[in-house]
Each structure stands twice: as structure tokens, then as C-alpha cells.
Design a protein around this nucleic acid. Structure first.
Length: 359
DNA sequence: AATGATACTCGGC
DNA sequence: TTACGGCCGAGTATCATT
């Protein structure tokens, strides 16, 4: 019997800060990404639960969050995101999870799937997940929520049921009931845009989606997405875990002001390229493709990318390629100004494969 | 026309 | 009153090759 669990650390960044500074215990915590464009310009990355109760949430402008906090009864701390620290904590938590589990899929900095198919029953699996969460609490002072189900989709959705610091078991015979009556955008992978499209054809709940002939979905969404929607609505998902390897690595930043002058943009690309290269080489891989990411003044994201003649670790190649892509983009769009710019690498090969490419 | 590779956008966290 | 990051992977469109 396949049993998959999804373990999800609660408001992870905010919880990391609370562990580092226990004085934050009863305060609201708001983790901020500052753009550098002046006081409080930027967006909220994560809010702790006390701050969420005030209505502060991810992607909210920091200024708006501060206005909410100003009227609140509790103290709210605004802290800059310290990703390097969170990554360290994450690595230790993943070690804890992997301690006596044979197969773990690290899905992101704060999430992992574990294969518990060795357990005889869902009850036994649930007990094992309790133990894992207990160790995370004891060793790192963090709470986690978890979902246990017959596949990754149900495990992931179940982990949202009892947040924070809770877990939910969904047995195969309960999947249909678990999904029924929920809005379609509760399905992982169905966001606002897809939900709107479904609403247009008269589908708002998961059981309505499940009752829709797959033919009809395919005719509206195309083969891949149509079948995927049908499967999800019936609670079907992957039953095996994978070892994820990094497929791309990027850095992006906000410019001091909107510009279309390459003399402003060049030094920024230079710094981003240096940083990306440092991370690429630390992984011991060569990159075979380069992308430039441009967010224009009207906040539209655009990308330009190219495949290199051969994978490389050359910083100069990375910089020059990214610079060329941005220059070409500006020439293509004489009317657009640049707000944010980024450098992305992908198509990685390890050193052995890179040398094979030389022959 | 079929297949696979590459380019680009979308959406989750 | 407004206010707005930095990543990642997946899906889709488009191109190249046969």
C-alpha cells in the first residue's frame, strides 16, 4: 500500500526568526524583502500567524503592512529576510526528517514528501509522522504541519487542513469526501486564473470538476492540462517520490530607478552574474543556457534566453550573454523602461559531461 | 507530420 | 489613497530536424 506524507514547516521564515530571538515570541513577525528604492519600498515575504491574524500576508506592500500594524494591539516586528540563515535551518530539518526514512523528496526550503509505504497502516504512518514533527520541535524549536495520504497530491492538500502544528490523515476511501464541496482552487496547481476559466464553463467546486467529462476539459484546456485537471479532481496524483536536482539558478534585483540606459543596467548585471556564477560553481556544474529576466516599469515579466555553444563556468560568458540579451530586448522595445533585472542559468551538466561535450 | 529541443510565460511559495 | 520580491518548476508555444 502506498502511503505518502507531506511535511510543511509553519510560517517558516518567521518561525526561524522567533527561534533566533525568543523576545519575538508573542509579537507579530513580518519578513520583508526590501527593494532598496527608499523607505519601506518592497513586499512582504512571509507573516507569522499573529501578523496573519491582523490581515498581513505574503506579497503585500511593506508600507501597507506597516499601516495595519500601526493600528494593532500587539507589537509587530518587521525584519529583513535572511535566506542564508533559513537555508541552514532547513538543511538541519531535512536531516532530521531523513534520519529513519528511506525515501525523502525535498520539495522546497520548507517542505518535504516522505514515503511511508513500509508502514502497515495509515495509523502507523501517522504515528511516525508525529515522531518526526516531535523531533523537529525538540531539536529546532519549529512546528510543522503534515498530511498523510495515498499520493503526493492528497498528502499536500491534507497538510493544509490542520495548520499550524497539526496533521491530517486522508485514507483512500475518504479521498472523494475530502475533496467534495471544496472550491476548485483548493486543488494544488489550480490558481486564480484556472479557477476563472473553470467558472466560465460553470464549474466552481471540485466535485463538479470531477463530474465533468474529461473530453470537455480537454476541449477547453488542451490535452495535458485537461487530463491533469480531471485526475486531480478525482484525487489522483504521483505515488512515487523523486530526487529533485536543481534545474535553474537565478538572481534578480530591483534597479534604483526605472531606466533603459545600459550604463545603469550593466554594472547590475555584472554583480548578478558574479553572484550566480559563485553559486553555480559551488554546485560543481557547468551551465548550458543563459536567460535575462526583465520586469518592465509596468510590472510585466519578460525573459530572453539562449543556449550556449557548450556548457561553461565562465563568468565573462555569463555576463556578456546576459548583457547582450537585455540590450536586444531594449532594442526590440523602444518604449519600455526596466524596473527589475535578473540573470538566470540552466541546462546544467556536471564536469564529466561537460568534458564529453568537448569531443 | 512527427519528434525533440528550446524559448517564454505562468503561478506557487 | 497608494504603496509591490526573489526565487523556483511546470506548462505551452515555437522552432529545428528528420
Amino acid at each position: 500500500m502506498v502511503i505518502i506524507a507531506h511535511v510543511d514547516l509553519d510560517s517558516f521564515f518567521a518561525s526561524c526568526e522567533r527561534v533566533r530571538d525568543p523576545e519575538l515570541m508573542d509579537k507579530g513577525i513580518v519578513i520583508c524583502m526590501y527593494s532598496g528604492r527608499g523607505d519601506d519600498a518592497g513586499a512582504v515575504s512571509t507573516a507569522g500567524y499573529n501578523a496573519r491574524d491582523l490581515g498581513i500576508g505574503a506579497a503585500m506592500p511593506i508600507k501597507q503592512a506597516k499601516h495595519i500594524a500601526a493600528d494593532a494591539d500587539i507589537d509587530v516586528a518587521f525584519l529583513p529576510a535572511d535566506k542564508a540563515y533559513y537555508k541552514d535551518v532547513s538543511a538541519r530539518v531535512m536531516q532530521i526528517i531523513a534520519e529513519d526514512i528511506t525515501e525523502v523528496e525535498v520539495a522546497s526550503v520548507d517542505e518535504a514528501y516522505v514515503d511511508l509505504s513500509d508502514c502497515e497502516t495509515f495509523d502507523a504512518a501517522a504515528e511516525q509522522v508525529e515522531r518526526i514533527r516531535g523531533r523537529i520541535r525538540e531539536d529546532e524549536g519549529l512546528t510543522a504541519s503534515a498530511g498523510i495520504g495515498p499520493n503526493k497530491l492528497i498528502a499536500k492538500m491534507a497538510s493544509d487542513e490542520n495548520k499550524p502544528d497539526g496533521q491530517t490523515v486522508v485514507r483512500p476511501e475518504s479521498v472523494e469526501q475530502f475533496l467534495a464541496d471544496r472550491p476548485v482552487d483548493d486543488l494544488y496547481g489550480v490558481g486564480a486564473k484556472t479557477a476563472d476559466q473553470l467558472d466560465d464553463i460553470g464549474i466552481t467546486t471540485i466535485d463538479e470538476l470531477a463530474a465533468t467529462p474529461v473530453q470537455h476539459l480537454v476541449s477547453v484546456f488542451g490535452d495535458t492540462r485537461g487530463v491533469a485537471l480531471h485526475d486531480k479532481a478525482h484525487g489522483r496524483g504521483a505515488e512515487t517520490l523523486e530526487q529533485r536536482e536543481k534545474k535553474q539558478l537565478s538572481r534578480i534585483t530591483t534597479l534604483p530607478q526605472d531606466t533603459r540606459s545600459m550604463s545603469d543596467i550593466r554594472p547590475v548585471i555584472r554583480d548578478l552574474a558574479a553572484d550566480v556564477l559563485r553559486r553555480v560553481t559551488s554546485h560543481g556544474v557547468h551551465f548550458g543556457s543563459v536567460s535575462a529576466i526583465v520586469i518592465t516599469a509596468d510590472r510585466e515579466t519578460r525573459t530572453r534566453s539562449t543556449t550556449l555553444p557548450a556548457p561553461t563556468q565562465s563568468e565573462e560568458t555569463l555576463y556578456q550573454t546576459a548583457e547582450r540579451l537585455v540590450t536586444a530586448f531594449l532594442e526590440e522595445h523602444p518604449d519600455l523602461a526596466v524596473r527589475r533585472v535578473g540573470v538566470r542559468t540552466g541546462a546544467f551538466t556536471d564536469e564529466k559531461q561537460a568534458r564529453l561535450g568537448e569531443f
